[in-house]
C-alpha cells in the first residue's frame, strides 16, 4: 500500500474518487458500467479490453457495443460470457 493510499484511508476520504480506483458495475449479463478506466486496448463485437490503474479488464461475449463513452467512463451492453481482471489469456 502506497503512502498516498495509507494517508487517504487514515483521513477517511473516498478512495475511488481520490485514487481513481476503477469501479465495475455489472447488471445481469447484459449491462456493464466501468468508471476510471484509462484507455481501450481492444474493442470488437466479442471482446472489450481496457486498461485501468489496477491493471487490465477483459469483457467477453456477443454483440458487445459501447452505449456511451467519455474520458474515464464506459457504458457497455451486450451478452457477456465473462468479465475478468487480467489481459489476454485466450
Amino acid at each position: 500500500m502506497s503512502r498516498k493510499e495509507r494517508m487517504i484511508r487514515a483521513l477517511g476520504m473516498p478512495e475511488d474518487v481520490i485514487l481513481r480506483v476503477p469501479q465495475v458495475e455489472l447488471m445481469g449479463r447484459g449491462h456493464l458500467r466501468l468508471d476510471h478506466y484509462k484507455s481501450i486496448l481492444e474493442f470488437n463485437e466479442n471482446r472489450l479490453v481496457v486498461t485501468t490503474s489496477q491493471g487490465v479488464y477483459t469483457v467477453e461475449g456477443e454483440k458487445i457495443r459501447i452505449c456511451f463513452a467519455k474520458m474515464g467512463e464506459l457504458d457497455v451492453e451486450g451478452v457477456f460470457t465473462s468479465v475478468r481482471l487480467g489481459g489476454d489469456s485466450a
Partner: peptide
C-alpha cells in the same frame, strides 16, 4: 483505430453507440 478512439475520448469528446462493423468504428 482504437488509438483514434482513445485520443478522442482523452480530448473530452463523448461517443455514443460505439460499435465495430467490418473493421470500421
Amino acid at each position: 483505430m482504437i488509438r483514434c478512439v482513445n485520443l478522442l475520448l482523452g480530448r473530452g469528446i463523448e461517443l455514443k453507440d460505439l460499435r465495430r462493423e467490418e473493421g470500421d468504428v
